[in-house]
Write a protein that binds this DNA or RNA. Sequence first.
DNA 1: ATTAGCTGCTAATACGTATCAGCACTTCTG
DNA 2: CAGAAGTGCTGATACGTATTAGCAGCTAAT
Lengths: 344, 344
Amino acid sequence: MAAVKRLTQRDIAQLAGVSQATVSLVLNGTPLSRSRIPTETRERVEKVIRDTGYVADPVARKMVKGLNRILGVFTYEPAFPSGQADFFTPFLFGIEEAAQALGYDLLLLTGAGQQRKIFGDNVRLRLADGCVILGRKFDNTELARLVAGDFPFVAVGRRDDAGGPVPYVGGDYAPATAALVERAKSFGHRRIAYVGLNEGAESTVDRWYGFSRSVGEAELVTSIFEVGRPPNETLDILLSAGATCVFVTELADAIAIEHAARTRGLSIPDDLSIVVLGNHIRAEEPGRRFTSFAIPREAMARAATEMLVRRVEHDAPVEQLLLHCEPLEGDTLGAPSSKTKKTK
Amino acid sequence: MAAVKRLTQRDIAQLAGVSQATVSLVLNGTPLSRSRIPTETRERVEKVIRDTGYVADPVARKMVKGLNRILGVFTYEPAFPSGQADFFTPFLFGIEEAAQALGYDLLLLTGAGQQRKIFGDNVRLRLADGCVILGRKFDNTELARLVAGDFPFVAVGRRDDAGGPVPYVGGDYAPATAALVERAKSFGHRRIAYVGLNEGAESTVDRWYGFSRSVGEAELVTSIFEVGRPPNETLDILLSAGATCVFVTELADAIAIEHAARTRGLSIPDDLSIVVLGNHIRAEEPGRRFTSFAIPREAMARAATEMLVRRVEHDAPVEQLLLHCEPLEGDTLGAPSSKTKKTK
DNA sequence: ATTAGCTGCTAATACGTATCAGCACTTCTG
DNA sequence: CAGAAGTGCTGATACGTATTAGCAGCTAAT
């Protein structure tokens, strides 16, 4: 019951009749120094180790070696609590998979509840050799400090403006959005609308950039740069602008608009096409599958983890990587009906 | 770019014109020793700390204090890889929640792929202050070593036979099963069958124990102590034994049996009631909601985490806790039809 | 005027490991 | 037979922190 005093190398040394240094050399000497320990001695030490079940204390080890084969996973927002957990799990899956493959363990530092700071009082983050940062809301001050500091990290999701280049793996939303616009145009849409923010997080800006880049000025009939507006109101604006297709950044808005439209007897996509910019986790809703693009969350997380390990192990230079987002067919984008056309 | 030599207490001390010891005392002195540092000095040191963003190295800290406010989570089976991840996530949610509330971080040690040993070569587990063990397949040798050792741990799920009492939090399956049996009897069932293992894991034994305890000998018409047998075969046995109600341990078996029965034109629960022993994660299958009992996975995980912290912080004695499993109504248990009764 | 007690600090040490310099001894070389 | 080279090992030290013992200098009490 009473703590049985943990076994140390000194104990092993005593039992084997050698010095602590010898034990350490047996355990992890360089080929060079290893050659200077005769087989007999080595086997004697190894036997004692086997018999006692000794394992080196990773803490002491880390202290002297500096590395621990542990990666931190930092999230500002609560990662797990079951409510909206599904946002993080695909990322965690990916990180875990890559970490396992590379022989690393994971230290979870999730800000469940109390907004947590990386540079807080009790930051145990540094136990890890480096860390992956997840989350939508980034504290730019902290990011800048990380960039300036020597602690290896990689962000999942593109980040700018941190007083230096931020290593990241993100989704390539701009071309993915542009591709959807092209697809809408090829269906014959000439009156297109946008609902969503056009500034703020990088991912948001990218969507708007990809959109505005490929939509001709004449084709953009209206933009609503906000989210969460009452759907009926939004719909009124869209219809009075004569839009035949609307691009929406938030799934929730898309669902609301679709619902409002259906209530008015409009048919999707005949009377109005809806495109969502990015597949959202709970997209497996009943019935309707929105046309969108896939965000390769697991692949992003894997790539970020591998990048982090490169930085940890080889002090690799900052990399910035955007992964391709595959279009998702869905059933909310189609040709505008001639009726709608005439209505205009 | 070149590693900017991590900040240490010595650096802080130098900048503030005091000794390293003073810095340490400012950071975490006892009220006693704190009272001996004048406010002026303390503020000077604190200012330097704030300006530099210094944080104490948790590794060195752990080395001297022995505690780290980190809990390990060990799983034998792969925890994350998305395939069957859903088994572990509720547990992880619960552990994470409790750990956060108690001010602990989580070190994930998941055996993805290579069957991992707790006592391997590279055991980073000891970095944690204690650990929660998850997983169905336990290595009893290792469990015994854990019990014998001084490393605090708590198992999720009841465990026996480890050369000593194993601290655990499990589900109280026996009475939950018994309650379902009583319920079946109150519906009028007098010819009951059992499909599933009756030995092996503790959780399995508990189910069988709860079942056999409350089913009268005359009422148990047949038992099939195996899983995965062809459903038609199973159904033949059940029907020829005249069973009106069958208790199944594996959801997969229940689904298969239900499907086979429906194919033959039998109605569930009129012609045959099916009770599953424990809600399985993916139970939200289309259509059919099986009568069963709820396994409070998150609560189990929370309780296990809290128990672990008690052991870590106060060296609390071994506790063994079984949590109540609420019955789940479902729609596969009902009164046996008179037709079925007559048929016999 | 001595001592006892307080205040403000610091030196020294321990924690468990990795690693390097080097000691004592043997064997080989010229 | 002196020196070089090799062998088998150990002592000392560093890593960054917490903590204890204790040193000056000062004040208050006897």
